[in-house]
């Protein structure tokens, strides 16, 4: 399936969960927030949220800012 991840198209295995994607990317889920199709995915739902074809995903974290 094809999703848009942080603005870039990306091909993923069908049925991958948010937690699975974070693991695949090497991202520590405790340090990020995930938005799927403009809805927040709570950390507690990372395991149970399966991604769908066409999903628009944003993974954000804190950086230096004023």
């Amino acid at each position: 399936m094809q999703i848009v991840l942080n603005g870039e198209p990306r091909a993923l295995a069908a049925g991958l969960s948010v937690a699975g994607l974070l693991k695949e990317l090497g991202i520590d889920g405790r340090k990020v927030a995930v938005e799927r199709n403009l809805e927040i995915v709570p950390k507690s739902a990372f395991e149970t949220t399966a991604l769908d074809d066409g999903d628009r995903l944003e993974i954000v974290h804190f950086i230096g800012g004023g």
């Binding site: 990317l25 954000v60 950086i63």
Partner: peptide
Amino acid sequence: TVAVRRVNISDPKQPMLMDFVDPKKYTYLP
């Protein structure tokens, strides 16, 4: 204060602010 930005997907192992400025020690104000 801290900003919220996209994680660099191509290089997620880059150092993160939280590893240097401990959110347990400082109150983060996003």
